[in-house]
């Protein structure tokens, strides 16, 4: 149980998982349903329960097409795709993973890059 993480994910997604009435319409509509180990409706339900560990390990987050069909059709104003996106971001941002090392940066730098991009990239990935 990781409530803090669940809170962060909820905030990032801007969705209130408690509004979900467990109808499963999101999973009924999802075009990638069969490829997902954790289904869209389960994302919402696990966030509501604060069980984020399973989500962070899930392969589903890399299968979601962000087609937003689940968001469009949800009768309760819940956005499963936004939750998936937030989990994806959380995984990317976890310290020690996927970060950009300062010494590796120069080889990618294009002189045309605005400085701001570099600064924000460091902020985002090099905690």
């Amino acid at each position: 149980m990781n409530n803090e993480q669940a809170k962060i994910i909820s905030e990032l997604s801007g969705t209130n998982a408690k509004q979900c009435m467990k109808c499963g319409k999101c999973s009924g509509r999802c075009p990638m349903f069969d490829s997902m180990d954790i289904k869209p409706h389960q994302f919402v339900s696990l966030i509501a329960k604060g069980q984020t560990d399973k989500l962070l390990e899930s392969k589903s987050i890399w299968y979601c097409l962000s087609c937003m069909a689940c968001v469009e059709r949800c009768p309760r104003g819940v956005a499963p795709a936004a939750v998936i996106e937030a989990v994806r971001e959380s995984v990317i941002r976890v310290q020690g993973q996927n970060q950009l090392k300062a010494e590796e940066v120069p080889q990618f730098v294009d002189p045309e890059f605005p400085q701001q991009i570099l600064v924000s990239a460091f902020r985002k990935y090099n905690r």
Partner: peptide, 21 residues
């Protein structure tokens, strides 16, 4: 137990796609 995501017509049949939770 579940909701329908979409209904579409395929060869004269109404395909009802939904989740069985």
């Amino acid at each position: 137990k579940g909701m329908v995501g979409k209904v579409y017509n395929e060869n004269g049949k109404l395909m009802v796609q939904g989740s069985d939770l």
